[in-house]
Design a protein around this nucleic acid. Structure first.
Lengths: 151, 151
DNA sequence: TGATCCTCGTTCGTATACGAACGATATTCC
DNA sequence: GGAATATCGTTCGTATACGAACGAGGATCA
């Protein structure tokens, strides 16, 4: 690194000042990877975080159209379709046409999906707990509040 | 599956207390998605965040073996291979066998890759700046410190 | 009514992400 | 020296993620 400590106020540190390991995006990707790893350990490899998001959302709010469900779980139309298809194959969700709108496909939990989701809820809470374990209690709320601002 | 074990004396407050929208994993996934979206807008669609991570790492530290490079950029062996292959096809990196270890493949920036990376550095800084824009200055350091603890 | 525009679901292509398995090469340890 | 073990790069399969394009259905307004 060239000298820049005394000549100081040069607002032009660009090149040498960029450290990949200090960029939010890079750090956040690693934090997310660790979270997914924890999720897989606790929930089992047969369910992914996105699939769980769909189940949990349907469990909380009941059925909705496929695209709306995607918006509620942060997936675009192409992605939610794949997720719903895989849940359909396992008969955890079921679909039906919307009688009020010929374009819409209503997605809802199957009875088996309701049971399955209810049984997994405690584990899902554990996932969050383990993910946040490295933080002190007050730090957890801070992190979540900050992350929400970045959405 | 066996029928749901008739709502026995489960003391669970669990069910109703789980709100998907409040789970770190879910919120972090959305924050990461927004970051990637910002990345694509600023850096251009021809380079992905992971590809940039590789270029930036090689630019900072010089060449390294493919697997080590993967560890430094938070990718497993299978993933880093695909990323390196795509950068190779664009001639932004080049490879050579490690003379000291017959298993290793050394990956380094090509001359064109050095220029390309240097030109993109200012934009990469902008990506971080825009991503963190919703936060106050002191909050940015807090967020990064907390995320680092979750890795 | 018809034209325009929007939304919905679908498909295609590309790029992470990662578990699992494999052969080739290094290292360790007896 | 040689066997057990570890690491390296590769390949396969599956699952997000999303831009782009498409046809079908719905809403708006002249």
């Amino acid at each position: 690194m060239a000298r820049s400590s005394t000549a100081a106020e040069t607002p032009e540190p660009a090149d040498e000042s960029y450290d990949l390991a200090e960029q939010v995006g890079f750090i956040m990707r690693q934090a997310a990877q660790r979270h997914v790893s924890i999720f897989n350990e606790i929930m089992g490899a047969d369910l992914t975080p996105t699939q769980w998001a769909v189940l949990a959302r349907l469990y909380q709010d009941g059925g909705s159209s496929q695209n709306l469900l995607g918006r509620q779980t942060a997936m675009d139309a192409a992605t939610i379709k794949g997720v719903v298809d895989r849940l359909l194959k396992r008969k955890l969700v079921q679909t039906k046409p919307d009688p009020e709108d010929g374009r819409r496909l209503i997605v809802e939990l199957s009875p088996a999906g309701v049971d399955y989701t209810r049984e997994l809820l405690p584990k899902a809470e554990t996932v969050t707990k383990v993910t946040l374990a490295p933080l002190a209690t007050n730090q957890r709320a801070t992190l979540i509040a900050l992350l929400k601002q970045l959405r």
